[in-house]
Design a binder for these strands. Structure first.
Lengths: 231, 231
DNA sequence: TGCCTTACTGTACGATCGTTCAACAACGGC
DNA sequence: GCCGTTGTTGAACGATCGTACAGTAAGGCA
């Protein structure tokens, strides 16, 4: 709601302050740069303080700007958070894709690189995973978060699908078939679950063990031990 | 901080109101009953409105009591939420154990009952899972939540361990061995991950498929297809 | 019946929330 | 040097937060 009361009288700057050569009080930035800085500050606050760090004042303080600036670059707080979620998602997928691209060309090596990247810094960070959980917690009740989730989760699923398809084409015995959708669903679920468990109690899950668990699971399914019930 | 201003003059009830036979304005409850009702209201608000439903006013309104009553039964909001988390956890484990107890005595049937209970109401409810995610989101920064998590997660892990141990004793070929800790970790991770995926996008995961995925995974490991790398 | 304990109410407080907007000022173009 | 554009500030708003506590009244007991 708009303010209705008149503003108080504003005392003008005195002449001495006006005549002295003043240092610049702030630096103007291009809108795109400032937006990125605000998004970075949002993610940083989320990692540090969890859900309670997502206040306009906390974020603007961390970004080193005034409280009013956020609403100059974003229509409201939800849109800022959604933008932060988009950035967060995009960075994750980009990092994983880069790790895969650096790996040897064999499907197995590429998949291993993907798994190892998933279970090593910067992804395997309690702060990062805490941020994920906060985003998930908003998913149900925030249209903006839902929209971004839909946009970016696609690309993650595609990545997992592609890696598994390569592997199956390479290693699967001729004449047998698997249900790729199920395997991909299971792998991403296993990944998420292990992530989550490590986040809640890091002592329970060692990263190398998590990778081994995932690989073992894929091995079993690819060898076709029993995927009939999954068709 | 304590209030310093004096309270306003309180108008006494007029004589007609005092002399008329008044209906009881509220019903006194035993502390334990009231505590349970407040905990139930807290969980209900959490399911309905997510993190934003966890305000004293929202909870007390749903419980049908005044704002002040919560602090009469709980020292502060965090302790109420921790108590709700404890109740939530306990109900989950109790429900799962009851489902297992109702099943046929064969380890395989008992495990299947456990899985099916995990992926059917009341556990497989988007609201329930949304509540979990909110609790997880608080884990990092709330001592009370950490404490309760430690208390109750134990019993969940023990349940999974026990069911798997039965199954392995029954079905595992003689002379082979598996690492129970790994299998239990993987199973609970797979469960959590599938839960989470169903919560975020129910269309992607059908409950029966989730159960089948878990069973297939256990089958493979129990058959000892390859658990050497997990030792 | 009157009394006492205590579950309970409801207002007030101070803090903090997201948002608004008049004023300020940095900086490119002239 | 001046001007116009616009990125930026910061105080103030109204709402809402968790908590405190003076006061009310329900219900058991003598």
């Amino acid at each position: 709601m708009r303010r209705t009361k008149p503003r108080r009288f504003v005392v003008p700057a005195n002449s001495s302050a006006r005549s002295a050569p003043r240092a610049a009080r702030y630096e103007r930035q291009l809108p795109e740069q400032r937006r990125l800085a605000l998004i970075a500050a949002t993610i940083d606050c989320l990692k540090r303080y969890g859900h309670e760090g997502l206040s306009i004042r906390t974020i603007s303080a961390r970004a080193g700007v005034s409280v009013g600036l956020i609403n100059h670059h974003f229509p409201n707080k939800d849109e800022l958070i959604a933008a932060a979620y988009r950035h967060f998602n995009a960075e994750l997928v980009a990092g994983l894709k880069a790790a895969v691209a650096r790996a040897a060309p064999q499907p197995r090596q590429r998949l291993r690189a993907f798994l190892q990247a998933s279970f090593s810094p910067p992804n395997l960070d309690r702060d990062v995973l805490a941020a994920w959980v906060v985003f998930w917690g908003m998913y149900r009740h925030s249209r903006a978060i839902q929209r971004v989730h839909g946009e970016n989760y696609e690309s993650y699923v595609e990545l997992v699908h592609g890696l598994l398809a390569e592997l199956i084409r390479d290693e699967r015995p001729r004449g047998t078939s698997v249900n790729l959708r199920f395997i991909a669903m299971g792998l991403s679920a296993l990944l998420d679950g292990l992530w989550l468990e490590w986040c809640l109690e890091p002592a329970n899950v060692r990263p190398a063990e998590a990778v081994a668990l995932c690989e073992s699971w894929i091995d079993n399914l690819c060898r076709g031990a029993d995927s009939s019930r999954l068709e």
